[in-house]
Amino acid sequence: MKRDDESFTEFAAVARRGLRNTAYLLCGDWDRASDFVQEGLIRVYVAWPRLTRNGGEHAYARRAVVSAFLDAARKRSSRELPAEPDPHLNTGVDLAAIVAETATLKEALRELPARQRACVVLRYFEDLDVRATAQVLGCSEGTVKSQTSRALATLRSMFDDASLEELVVSERHA
């Protein structure tokens, strides 16, 4: 294996789990998440020599995965997500205490347009600030703010409708 391939493979091995988690929150399906990660990593591979010169491999990979998801969302309806419970959920973990909230969250995320969903995931799962989120999405910071605000309003409504405790956003992790 060439040295570039080795370094890329090592990077991909470390990054793929986190990227897949992000992709799953975007699309709601683990298999499709894997597809988006694969597509994103292919884009990373193509740009790899330049990336390793300039740095920022992970940010580039995240952007590529999000782009793959948004591309797909444009081609399909942004609401086209699996309605059935995810059959792949690992039964070895006790989810009883969190299943209602996470199920509601998953349902609520499904209701959001793709870009709003991306804003929520990037801001509150990836912990990106407005500026970095705008970079990933290739839009203005104002758009990120407005899309995030609309998304949060919808999510809160869904939690209210489900008679769950109110949804809040904790401070960003240090």
């Binding site: 929150l25 969250l105 929520v120 509150y124 949060l152 939690f159 109110e166 949804l167 904790s170 992790h173």
Partner: peptide, 8 residues
């Protein structure tokens, strides 16, 4: 309350 970051 339900914290969005935790739920994600």
């Amino acid at each position: 309350v339900n914290d969005l970051r935790r739920l994600l």
